[in-house]
Design a protein around this nucleic acid. Structure first.
Lengths: 192, 192
DNA sequence: ACCTGAACACCGTTCAAGT
DNA sequence: ACCTGAACACCGTTCAAGT
């Protein structure tokens, strides 16, 4: 039997169920109405009082962050693979496309993520930093291989990704992909 | 003396003064806090009741639209000039830069303008349409001159402009200009 | 340990009453 | 013709009281 004070105890069964229900309802609300969807309606759909929602998630960002967890894991796994991919140019392009698509899960997410990169208190901060770090490393590798214009920075790449996500929210994913496609042509080192 | 019923009468002197004060305070509030700044504080700064603000401007968009009027006129005048400029490629680039900078006046403006293009009821709708129209015509001219990749559409150009504005709000004008610079290199017809 | 929901704060918007 | 500001609605957030 577990009597250790430093061991994390199991959450109560009803608490765990409420947590899951809140996540499910939040996902559905954010999908339909964007990340600004009213939280009280989410609590009501989940069959709990508003205080319960705040008990599990101190704010909207915490809710979004929890919902993004699986997606983030998948994206970072992809990123790790790309760092070892044979073509560093293709790897960078794939990263840009997938990272941009990642921020498309909910309308308003591109804004929240752009906010999170500069806000250390944000629950989204650490995942934003990791995304930024992948951009740094994939850009460095592509540049070392001479497949990138010399003046292109990792900040440029991150900015393109964010801008493409925002465009997808406001117009269409197709338009955002056209943007990235055109950008990538411009990023290539002109044949000498 | 003017007795015609169809002629617009002069607004009352106090009404006109309130209108101007509200615009001035809104400009300052939007500059400092973005287009989402609380309207009641604007009314208070202008020394009028909140109802007076709503009497002059039915909503936030109407306020923004009125503030943008001079800027819009200047931008459209520039656009007209660019349609007659000798280099259609340079004209398109200049338009992209200036149109992107235009939406940088207040934080949040890029979002509002992107919203306005699809919302016929928006006070910003007509100016969004005009901006879009300039993109169409300047793009057509550049393509006719063979200085644009064949697959680049006016929608792509408009999307780039919006995305650059948004980037300027979230990061810096410098970063946004780097984006446009890189994009423009990619838009050029590769030398054959 | 967790849940409840009343309470408060903040802000947008309307409108009856004034001048 | 225009202004006032109380009133209402909506939503985020907290917290004392419950179980």
């Amino acid at each position: 039997v577990n009597t250790g004070q430093s061991l994390r105890r199991q959450p109560r069964a009803d608490a765990r169920r409420n947590y899951e229900r809140l996540l499910a309802e939040a996902d559905s609300a954010f999908r339909e109405q964007g990340t600004g969807a009213p939280l009280d309606a989410i609590a009501r759909s989940a069959g709990v009082a508003i205080g319960t929602l705040y008990g599990h998630f101190p704010n909207r960002r915490a809710l979004v962050s929890a919902l993004l967890k699986d997606r983030n894991d998948a994206l970072f796994e992809l990123g790790s693979g790309l760092l070892a991919a044979p073509s560093s140019g293709d790897a960078l392009k794939t990263w840009m496309r997938e990272a941009a698509r990642h921020a498309t899960a909910y309308r308003g997410l591109a804004d929240m993520l752009a906010e999170g990169i500069g806000d250390e208190a944000s629950e989204l901060h650490s995942s934003c930093l990791r995304m930024s770090d992948f951009a740094v490393r994939l850009t460095a590798r592509a540049r070392a291989d001479g497949v990138l214009r010399a003046e292109v920075t990792a900040a440029d790449i991150s900015a393109f990704i964010s801008a493409a996500s925002w465009t997808a929210e406001r117009t269409s994913l197709e338009q955002a992909e056209r943007l990235l496609e055109l950008v990538m042509k411009g990023l290539q080192q002109p044949a000498s």
